[in-house]
Design a protein around this nucleic acid. Sequence first.
DNA 1: TTTGAATAATTGTAATACAAAAAATGGTTT
DNA 2: AAACCATTTTTTGTATTACAATTATTCAAA
Lengths: 248, 248
Amino acid sequence: MRIESKKVKDIMNNNFSNISMSSRSLHVQVARSIARRILSGDLEQGSIVPNEMTLCEQFGVSRTALREAIKLLTSKGLLTSRPKIGTKVVNRAYWNFLDPQMIEWMDGLSDAKVFCSQFLGLRRAVEPEACALAAIHATAEQRIELSEIFQKMVQITENFDQEAWTEVDLSFHRLIFNSTNNDFYLPFGNILTTMFKTFILHSSMHGAVCLNEHRLIYEAIMAGNSAAAKAASVDHLQSGKHRLPETE
Amino acid sequence: MRIESKKVKDIMNNNFSNISMSSRSLHVQVARSIARRILSGDLEQGSIVPNEMTLCEQFGVSRTALREAIKLLTSKGLLTSRPKIGTKVVNRAYWNFLDPQMIEWMDGLSDAKVFCSQFLGLRRAVEPEACALAAIHATAEQRIELSEIFQKMVQITENFDQEAWTEVDLSFHRLIFNSTNNDFYLPFGNILTTMFKTFILHSSMHGAVCLNEHRLIYEAIMAGNSAAAKAASVDHLQSGKHRLPETE
DNA sequence: TTTGAATAATTGTAATACAAAAAATGGTTT
DNA sequence: AAACCATTTTTTGTATTACAATTATTCAAA
């Protein structure tokens, strides 16, 4: 019996497809296109974008599709509409940069290096505290899962495979955010994953060193030692050599 | 000449109305209603919600409006749709709790006390680091604006007015997030504001003490002393007495 | 100058029709 | 019986048209 393990796993996880199925639907494609015009500064903050019919013609889509695209962008804080006035680009201060789809849309617009180091600037704030909270609040099941994941890390390190390691690394950090059992930390799992997948981040250090850093975090959380978990995470993120974008 | 200062100011700021104009449009009302069913657990994760025509009848709206509502919820990570299958509630791990509109929708669902203390759990991670970054990266204009805002705080403290103080307090913290000049910190200004407006948070300590805490943050940032700014912020947020929900 | 009614431009909502995707069905072949 | 393939069926996706609601603009009147 041949197995399509990925598909089966997706079904088990109640996911339709791994990620947000990229851009199958028309309105998402249109939204992405407009979003990038806004994010790049092509459409200026505070300016009124062309009216719906004009945009329909520009993109060659129906008003239905276009309006759904605009609703999507409104939801991200990029646009706001009113009858008779039109649809306006809102001030940058209201853009939801913490939305994974927004992050995908940034791909190739701003300097990836800058963008990633900015992200690291947030990660350094959030993740150590997440580790500290996880050490305290992780459930029994979550601790079991964490040890299973760390086991995998050890195995992969033995004969190193970049892709497999990225996968398990992400699931490691994602589980930590989940293990805070704090709703406000949950989204960072997706944000981190999206950052990795769109700006292909490689940890320049393979194997031993990196595994050791993870081991320190892992053991501190398992021991319920929040201070140690936090310190280990700070150390992990401060060794500023790694996690630079692959390009250039 | 009579002045409608608020409206004039809104026009100056390029805002259509102060906040996201709540629920003027039909599709937002529908979205809110469905969102609350999901957030409350009434609609279970992984389950398929009724098909579009059924929902149209339930809400008494057209398919156009209903679909725009669903697109909004999809954008927040709550739903995902596919032809022939239907629209499914996605796993909680993918919900964007860092979206201001999502936070509004939580009002009255979960225990406000728990929710607010969870938020404080994130704030304690993010805000001290934001202060540290602001101390380093704030522009000249931002430093000027910060001192103006602090001036206002002093004035308001002299004859205390709760509402006015909340207003200026929020603008103080918002400006700090902006002054990091880091895209990923920007959204926290809106998140903080939304948390305050929907879960009416009162700082139990008025006047002098609180002003002093802000002064320490303010002076450290102005001096460019990131370590001191961070420490002052930690202190400000650790005095765990304040910022509890008003209800009960 | 101010007021107020008419106008016009744009988004908001509705209704209908058809296209596309994909599971489910059932019959055919191996 | 098992595998395969075309057919059917269900649901969302897109297009089109029409009309309602909102509100800036215009222009006339007081």
